[in-house]
Design a binder for these strands. Structure first.
Lengths: 344, 344
DNA sequence: CTGAAAGCGCTTACAG
DNA sequence: CTGAAAGCGCTTACAG
């Protein structure tokens, strides 16, 4: 095992003394700043060797104060979203992380708790260089971010304010799913929304559903339900088969997974008796029984795009015109959707 | 929307000047340091009001350098574990986050990438006050952490070195699951391990399986397989039913979910033809078809315990004797386990 | 009861 | 080609 670092770590002064040069020169060399080109190679090597030998590493604390940069990017989200998010946020976080890591930046989680003063303080205290806002962008977050002049970008959230944001085309994705079901011959298609917190995707997905249903002449079967999965299954199980929907769309794949199970419990077969389609493309959509037909959000790309927008703002001198980036969703047909039952 | 902060943010000097006191007094009051008791209430109020009015917030950058504390705790993990981990790590992270948040600390993710010098540098550059090590503790991480004298604790990882660590009782949990299956009347119980990276839980779970099988007189049926789920299912589907295992234990719930699906695809019914048990207690164990009998790790408590151990080290003056905390696992019987088929 | 001063460990114009 | 000096914005013994 390597020897312990001495109790008091070496500082830049220790390296400078050891080499008989100034702190300036050490800093310049170790940071590869432009000025280092003018330092003779011999000196450079000597400094690097000394740093190595002493086990010197520039203190991030000192550097942060002097350089006025922390290389940390806040990821701001509202509970009850858990710290470790599932579903779409897995991909979004992976995309964010990838871009930040490439650029030597780190993520700082900022949950928007009850105590507004607490999180507002964190946004104001200069500990991050920029931020990504997940899912929801509303007061008092909006005005706090503007006030502290922090570069930021929304991910999977929209806004009427002129701010950078990266969205999924939820209208297009939903329309594609409904069209797929209609093409299979379904007419009685129900949208099982459940109780959802307000999110822009809800409106878009439901709107596309209504529009396609109308365009295909199934307007009379439009039905957007806020029931829970068990309520829904219990209710349709009690209905005569010919009145039941022949296809159900759920708002996200957690609900779809639950729905498949409850239908199985109630003896309704998917897709023979009922087709099920949903949104989301993460585990376990491929491993449900049957595998789930679902609309994938381009989550990693969303995360990457948003992270890049923040990095650009940080790195460019002048303000960048706010951009609204909308990325396509794509339907993957698996085995939970099929033609409706014959007597349907 | 609130007014913007001026381009140059107010500093402690601005507040001091406005109140006609020194920086010292402002710092003391705003931090509620012990010395603040001696400042007259009138002055305190005046300072607080001025800070409020100026929109002053102590700069984290300045504070970090002066106080020698960052209030950040590294969460160190080895890829290929993704940034946003699923399964057990959801709970572990939630537990860590809970304790850290209560104490005003933040998480900093430190993935152990290829570039050792890179992450070792991050551990050395004074940007965190302590660390939690997930899952795996080996060289060169071990010596790096020792060398920089950073307080740390392992979570869901063990070590022969004298370090703080929090573990789940994988032996006990596995034994309970095997006993449950034996009690139902199973003899031909197979452990489907799959290809797993080395982790202490593998040995413990397998060991318990062997021990219980032996104790119950089923030693001749002991079988630990490294096949993939599809390989396993294809193989047993080709065997005569009376030679197949009547119960399968998978190493974790991702595999179990996949297994349930493949068995369904192959026409084998769970639990009628085959029982399935596993480890892990996160989504979708309750929503699989059928709901999965599984052994839950006390993940949140593991995260909390480990975070507390790190906080204690940070806050206590002298070194604390390394502790090895082992927390119980508990079996939840759902509907994927039942008595073996009659002719079994 | 309060403040001057040193110090935390760097970076970066600027001067030579 | 190199360094002295100022500065980043705080905290904290210490002196009065």
């Amino acid at each position: 095992m390597d020897k312990l670092l001495p109790m008091s770590r070496p500082t830049i002064m220790d390296v400078a003394r050891k080499c008989g040069v100034s702190k300036t020169t050490v800093s310049v060399i170790l940071n590869d700043s432009p000025a280092s080109a003018r330092v003779p190679v011999e000196t450079r090597d000597r400094i690097r060797a000394a740093a190595e030998e002493l086990g010197y590493r520039p203190s991030w604390r000192g550097r942060v104060l002097a350089s006025q940069k922390t290389h940390m990017i806040g990821v701001i989200y509202a509970p009850p979203m858990p710290l470790i998010v599932r579903g779409n946020y897995e991909g979004i976080m992976a995309g964010i992380h990838q871009v930040l890591q490439e650029q030597g930046y780190h993520i700082l989680f900022v949950p928007l708790g009850e105590d507004t003063a607490h999180w507002a303080g964190i946004l104001q205290d200069q500990r991050m260089d920029g931020a990504l806002v997940l899912s929801r962008f509303q007061e008092p977050l909006a005005s706090t971010l503007m006030r502290v002049r922090m570069p930021f970008c929304l991910v999977n959230a929209d806004s009427d304010l002129p701010v950078h944001r990266v969205l999924a085309d939820d209208y297009g994705g939903s329309a594609e799913l409904v069209r797929h079901l209609c093409d299979l011959g379904h007419e009685r298609i129900t949208f099982l929304l459940g109780k959802q917190p307000g999110h822009y995707s809800i409106t878009r997905r439901v709107e596309a559903y209504r529009d396609v249903m109308r365009a295909r002449g199934h307007e009379r079967f439009v039905s957007v339900l806020e029931e829970t999965v068990p309520q829904f299954v219990d209710r349709i199980a009690a209905e005569p088969a010919r009145e039941r929907p022949t296809a159900v769309i759920t708002y996200q794949h957690f609900m779809a997974t639950h729905l498949l199970q409850k239908l199985w419990d109630a003896g309704m077969r998917v897709p023979d008796d009922l087709s099920v389609g949903s949104f989301g493309n993460t585990f376990p959509v491929e491993h449900t029984i049957p595998p789930l037909s679902s609309v994938a959000l381009p989550t990693e790309e969303m995360g990457r795009a948003a992270a890049r927008l923040v990095m650009q703002q940080i790195q460019s001198a002048e303000a960048i015109e706010p951009r609204r980036v909308v990325l396509q969703e794509t339907l993957t047909v698996r085995r939970s959707t099929a033609a409706p039952p014959a007597e349907g």
